[in-house]
Design a protein around this nucleic acid. Sequence first.
RNA 1: GGGCCGGCAGCUCAGUCUGGACAGAGCGCGGGCCUUCGGAGCCCGUGGUCCCGGGUUCAAAUCCCGGCCGGCCCA
Length: 592
Amino acid sequence: MAEEAPPHDPYSLLVRTIRTSIRDAVSSAYDVDEPVEVPVDPEPPVEDADVATPVALSLAKEVGEEPRRVAETILEESDLDEVVLVDEARVEGPGYINIRLNRPQYAALVLRSVFYYGEEYGSLDLGMGRPAILEHTSANPNGPLHIGHGRNAIIGDILARCMVFTNYDVEVQYYVNDMGKQIAMLAWKYIKEGRPEVPEGRKPDEFFGELYAEAAREIEEDPELEEVVERFLRSYERYLLEEESRAERIAEAFQTVVEECLRGHIETLERLRVAHDRFVYESEFVEDAVEIVEKLVEMGAAEERDDGAVVLDLEDYGIDKELVLTRSDGTTLYTTRDIAYHLWKLGRAAFVIDVLGADHKLAVQQLKAALDLLDADPDRVDVIFYEFIHLPEGSMSTRKGRYVTLDEFLDEAKRRALEKMREAGVAEDLDEEEREEIAENVAIGAVRFAIARVSPNKPIEFDWDEALDFRRGGPFIQYAYARARSILRRADEDVQRFDAAHLDDDHSFELVFRMSMFPRQVAQCVRKRRPDILAEYAYELARAFHTFYEEVPVLHAEDEEVRKARLKLVEAFTIVMENVMNLLGVPALERM
RNA sequence: GGGCCGGCAGCUCAGUCUGGACAGAGCGCGGGCCUUCGGAGCCCGUGGUCCCGGGUUCAAAUCCCGGCCGGCCCA
């Protein structure tokens, strides 16, 4: 007889079992119209209970009885005692039902799931293969990526990894803003400086970032230059629409600075292990944008102002601010092209996700309103906003040349990792190159985790020491994994049969329980679009392991059977941890 | 002036959507743990008017109203 496949999500199975049992008890004991909500708390603040539910408290009022009395009745009526995963259920406090799990049973179930699904453990089928386009990073190619862009990239990248893992057909796009005013400023400066080559050994985006900041300063000092820059922009747009050969020189300048900066961005993103499937250029949508404006005018939704600008009135959507679609000189605006881009995306995927800074909130409202007018479904566009990262001296600004680049952040993290390795005397047997590689991977983990762990709608005050506090960051997680791997290396044996009943001590079971929460946490991360949930989970899982490691001997276990069970637990932990780390993009290291 | 987001321990944050037990972590500070698997670790302790004021509720950090402070966007 073939063994039945274990559950993908053991914790949810447990919760469902408890819920069903309690619901049945409630409906047989009380006269309630609808099945009751049964909230389950995985971390009750009491000794000797693994999960709890306050269901009797809310039910008490409805049925007009004392909460404790209700809880007692539920327990009497329910078959919780017979549930194989439950050891004991009792009423405590004001009327909580506290449940102690049958630890051997639950541990066996969880480990079976982990080993059965392996690197697929945690991958629930949330997406059912639906195609989605996820756009993130999309920084202006007028300077290097700074840590603010990093927040965008990392939120987007983790979400992309989680969505692929949960069976969405994801295409990750980078929207290259290759024709805004900033690019025009840079193109102007580039020509003015005689089209300089990027000096040997310099990152192109950093080089052009400095040029851009200089351009910004010059233009600020001499407002007449504004007109020149605007002429550049007009020329380029006309070039794109009509292939006007006179503008060829200008077009070439735009394209050169964009390509060079983008090259630098990609280099940085690769280092950070952030990948895009496709780069889409804003300039590709100029024609579509013009057509959209015509259509909106035809529909009577947009109209030409006295100065020749075409504007869209969005008061029906509760937006007081009218949206300018074309300037008085006839050129389109960023948002106009963005409408075209989104229509294109919506035509290619079931839904679209954008990761954007909180400063785009109004623009997105306008975009969605415009999409609605054009008969596209704005609800298929889901935007994740993140708040800014501030430096002690103020908000970051490419224009002012005030920023901490992602490369600087990584370099500093790496420097600290190497220092720590020297201090601790680890990996001394390895050569310089191997040590460097380890430090680089620790740096990647530290940087990604530092940014990922804060919820997107929280503003961040950047502080080096805090961001690179290895004690509560990526390295903490990597270290847990390395410790586990170290045990497995030393044991050097492949345990086949073991008895999970030996894992019922508090620390082992806490680890088992945490591992069982993984599929649930991935799902939460995807549904709520909150990578920080997964980062927090990784931290808790690592903490559970560190405690286990300190408190529970594995190789020196008191008994051969216990040793086998614990070895399997450690192995299972490495599987789950590796899965989490893959989703977070935090490198899993054998040694560090 | 309007809109959105944040405000919780000295500091950095989770918990708020879906209201429930003494509000949780990390850092800091004080104390302990290497003759057993890697001390980037673990354990114990310390520390809180959950911004303020009202309201709803048996029960509010959580929901509602008003205000204050900070960030962002718009005029």
